[in-house]
Nucleic acid binder design. Structure first.
Length: 123
DNA sequence: CCATTGACCGGCT
DNA sequence: TAGCCGGCCAATG
């Protein structure tokens, strides 16, 4: 009975989980997802993983935006419009192709959460 | 195997 | 507000 060879579990499971936690009508950033997944400073990996992830995972990828509140795709591009319409459908509004992160970001940034997730010393 | 890319980010000029 | 920079490092060529 050993199942050692195992079905090599997808090592990015933590990232998928974090993404699935983002509520409808809210958005999170690549960096925040990385942090929540236990991979500090690996924002880029989140983008790479999302790009290669199978659609069958049904991830709410449209809720992931850059930390500045902008979509990661070129304005006007196909994926840009798709993501934007999906977000608008959930009630997220845009102003100059930008989302007000102080209002829509999840998790919300509070002093306590910041220390819990990021700690005092920036790095 | 080595080099370049890239759905990023925070700090600093 | 606008760039540039270094850190990160899987994926791709």
């Amino acid at each position: 009975m050993k199942k050692s060879p195992k079905k090599s579990a997808d090592p990015y499971e933590p990232i998928y989980t974090a993404i699935r936690r983002v509520p409808k009508g809210k958005v999170s950033s690549y960096g925040a997802i990385a942090q929540l997944a236990g991979l500090p400073r690996r924002a880029r990996l989140v983008g790479t993983v999302l790009k290669n992830s199978s659609p069958s995972l049904k991830l709410p990828w449209h809720r992931i935006v850059t930390s500045s509140g902008r979509l990661a795709f070129p304005v006007g591009s196909d994926p840009f419009r798709t993501q934007q319409s999906r977000l608008k459908r959930e009630g997220v509004t845009f102003a100059n192709n930008k989302i007000d992160m102080s209002f829509y970001a999840w998790p919300p940034r509070t002093v306590e959460l910041d220390e819990l997730l990021w700690g005092h010393d920036s790095r």
